[in-house]
């Protein structure tokens, strides 16, 4: 039990004439090493939820436990929490500010009060992990391309060596190639470094291939919390809340309707291909 969200509610603008309930009684358990996709439509409360997880927003009601410790305890070290639960915001490249790439990545570990050597070592490691070449290290971050900027920004959080990495829409505004690169890079981090990853997105297509578990949010509530295959079975309900299952699910459903006895479980193109081939071979 790495992170436990226990009956958390959050109300924005409670003292105005337009209070908005952003989260309603959320319960969620995150285990070590998991890759979780947090999906929801714009305004479903997914960004709000992840900002609770590292203590940036305080819940109106409920509690959050990190390694079994209540993060709202008076003597709980918030700074330590933020280094252990790394949060990469939407469009993280907008937070870059240093004169060169390397010192920008150093910002996080430096704030942790580590010795200079350790700071630089971590920054170097983080930049390597996200696949930034040495030649870019001493360039201004503002001279890089969009995708590279985003990698640098992600490295800025990775350099704090978090146990949980939360990424809020890491693929927003990227082209398909950049998207695939970022997502497979994240998958690598999770597999090789054993980091727990929470990927916030509104696109099922993005997450279907990579995640172990999908949490679907709608209007501040958790609608589904299960394996991708399980969640995509409810594709009609997903459509009702403005989401969709991956295109593959639809193809398999159509095939079944047309009388081809395929399973509708595949969620990736590769799995679908295998399934269709299997059925066709059996027919012969």
């Amino acid at each position: 039990m790495l992170l436990v969200v226990d009956h958390v509610s959050c109300i924005y603008g409670a003292d105005t004439n337009m209070p908005v309930a952003a989260l309603k009684d959320i319960n969620l358990v995150i285990k070590e090493g998991e890759f979780i996709g947090l999906i929801g439509h714009t305004g479903s409360g997914k960004s709000t939820l992840v900002q609770h997880m590292n203590g940036l927003i305080k819940a109106t009601d409920g509690a959050i436990y990190f390694h079994g410790q209540d993060i709202y305890d008076g003597d709980f070290d918030k700074k330590n929490l933020r280094s252990k639960v790394g949060l990469v915001f939407q469009y993280p490249e907008h937070q870059l500010f240093e004169v060169d790439v390397f010192s920008d990545v150093c910002f996080g570990p430096k704030n942790l009060g580590l010795p200079k050597k350790e700071v630089e070592l971590r920054a170097y490691k983080a930049l390597k992990q996200v696949g930034i070449l040495d030649e870019y290290f001493y360039q201004s971050p503002f001279d890089l391309s969009g995708g590279q900027k985003r990698r640098v920004a992600i490295a800025g959080v990775l350099a704090m060596e978090p146990e949980v990495l939360i990424l809020d829409e890491p693929t927003a505004g990227l082209d398909p190639k950049g998207r695939d690169e970022i997502l497979s890079m994240i998958k690598n981090l999770q597999k090789e470094m054993g980091i727990t990853v929470i990927l916030v997105s509104h696109s099922m297509e993005d997450v279907a291939e990579y995640v172990d578990r999908i949490v679907v949010m709608n209007k501040g509530e958790i609608l589904f919390n299960a394996e991708p295959k399980e969640v995509f079975k409810h594709y009609k309900q997903l459509e009702e809340i403005g989401l969709a299952a991956p295109a593959v699910t639809y193809i398999m459903e159509k095939c079944k309707e047309a009388g081809i006895p395929v399973s509708t479980e595949p969620t990736t193109i590769y799995e679908a291909k295998q399934e269709i081939l299997k059925v066709l071979v059996q027919r012969k």
């Binding site: 940036l56 700074k79 933020r82 915001f89 937070q95 910002f107 996080g108 570990p109 704090m160």
Partner: peptide, 13 residues
């Protein structure tokens, strides 16, 4: 607000 939060997530005080 957003940038502040983003930098706080990187340990800024």
């Amino acid at each position: 607000d957003k940038i502040m939060k983003a930098q706080m997530a990187r340990g800024a005080n």
